[in-house]
Design a protein around this nucleic acid. Sequence first.
RNA 1: GCGCCCGUAGCUCAGCUGGAUAGAGCGUCUGGCUACGAACCAGAAGGCCGGGAGUUCGAAUCUCUCCGGGCGCACCA
Length: 677
Amino acid sequence: MRLIDVYLELQKRLTEHLRAVLQTKYDLQIEVIPLEIPPDLRFGELATPIAFELARKLRKAPKIIAQEIVAALGHLDGFSSFEVAGAGYINARLDRAAGVRLAAGSEGGSPSAQGSPELTRGHALVEHSSINPNKAAHIGHLRNAILGDTFVRLLRAAGYKVDVQNYIDNTGVQVADVVVGFLHLEGRSLADIRQLLGELKRSGVRIDYYCWDLYARTSQWYASGSPEENEARKRFRYATMHEIERGCNETAEVAELISTSVLRRHLETMLRLDIEYDFLPRESEILHLNFWALAFEQLKQTGVLYFENEGKNKGCWVMTRPAAGTQPIQEDDGPKGTDEDAKVIVRSNGTVTYVGKDIAYHLWKFGLLGRDFGYKPFFTYPSHECWISAEHGDEPHPHFGGAQAIYNVIDARQSDPQANVIQALRGMGHTAQADHYTHFSYEMVALTPRCAVELGYDVSEEDLARPYIEVSGRKGFGVKADDLIDKLIAATRAEVDARQTGRDEGERQRIAEQIAIGALRYFMLKFTRNSVIAFDFKDALSFEGETGPYIQYAVVRARNIFRKAGTTPDAVLDEFAGIDPAAYLEGEANEDIWALWLRAGRRSLVLEQCISTSEPAHLAKHGFQLAQEFNNFYHKHHILTEEDPTRKIFLLATVAVALRELIVVLSWLGIESPEAM
RNA sequence: GCGCCCGUAGCUCAGCUGGAUAGAGCGUCUGGCUACGAACCAGAAGGCCGGGAGUUCGAAUCUCUCCGGGCGCACCA
């Protein structure tokens, strides 16, 4: 199955043709020929400013060069004409009928249908979500998971084999804190906690919600006593963390019980958004399987780590930070000044830091560590199993890791440690891997002060003056993911109930959920990654304008046309293959229809752009623009009452292609296309 | 102090490797449901793209500088 994208295909043809012309006419070999989509159709469908670039080299006016090139271009399949415009642009006009046939015949297909061998580009690993399993997921985690999941869909659509990982820090200070809360603040034993979990389940209380409050309470408790008391509490905190890290004791068992229960809740929450994982690697196994010991040897051997004898880091194993220089540390280069800025990887007490463990984990991701996790099944999705790491796993099991390219969906605040890990890989000589290590960074989701007040939080004068306030799990400040989803579904349900009076309860609920999820996913994807989202219910609960439901509504309209017409998109496209559409594509009155076909033919181009820039927002924008042009077309041309039977087929084919494209784009965004709404 | 990100219409944001009159949504005002569903469409108003300098045929986009806002710079994770 071959995917033909009108723009990609015609761009390729034009580029090659231009290159050949430049070669024969001027004896020039130009590698990259800039091509752009003109701002307006009256400039044609493709354009190049190449004549401007050549002006200096050829010592001629751009306009003259453009005229010479146009004269030499002659005829090219798929194009109707080339012309000079402005001070030296070369504008290309497409053969519209040919372009439309190309677009109509391109394969739609679901993302999974495109994984044919010739499209397989390699093995990618995407890590996203990675929520500390000690509290409920909040809107910040939603942005992470939705970005990550969408990018997974894009990679798969482009032909990559993708493993989805959700890294679980089940031994860190955050889990320790909630364990302290259970054991110390609430004074519960392991048996008590087991009983509590049962009670919560029976009474329908979400355990992650329970932990949300307890975690905030515990965090406060550390700072609410006398200085001596606080000191003792902190000691208790670190003792708890060490017991959890060591394992094989009751505290560790409590941590395991709590973190696993909360983790299951996170998977359930994400499943509501159609987000699934393949593997859950846990910190506890990275520790107990001694990943670090292997990494440490490699780091020492390659000279990335060196032992510091002087200064503030005396007694530590450290590495040079990326900013300080890209050369690996050389031995025997005489007395050198102590690098006070070096990053400590192994502390003077012999324990390893977060970055050190992360280096080991990333060596594993690329298959460079020489050791693997054990694997156990953990969570069953309708279509596949999600595995979790284990010290002693089950056999047989799938193999994870050993990827060629990795994407870490982690917020922008962690760019320094991420850069450290990349630097270490590069220093160890794994340059190809370092080049294919992408920190897929994104800015946080914060609350507008108004939203914070609305939720009943105490907001300081200082915070009220800010444009936005950072959410904080530690303070229990934020909007929980499930609360937001519940609220969205309630809002869409009210709309659906008002409109779909003929449908039963179950159907209406299903539609409401599809719309709610569409609204939420689109909301998180419409912003580019490095824009902070100042969250407000007013915007998130909007179903009009540039939103997911707007695009879904276009789909419903298109489907209704086929329903009323008593035909199907496939049947129409078959008929369409037998007619000549040229007459319906020319002239002012049909300009918008041609624009819609052009937009529909841009999907793969946009996909490639999204992948090369790691930016799903481009596809979100494309989906909206496509829906907008479709709505425009829908309003202006009445299809079912069209009297010219050939033109009616043409119009129906236009709807068929728009519908196909809308559905595919939405599916790549992880958004379903409802039958009605 | 060092590093990264941001500053575009009243508000929230797009703007592809520099390119043709700077776009969208929301909000405001006006108009359109007896035509395929109005969760829609059409129109209007609204901008020295934070300021300044530079690079060039050409800058919202690249460089420098200043101003304003955010986030990082642990032997925490």
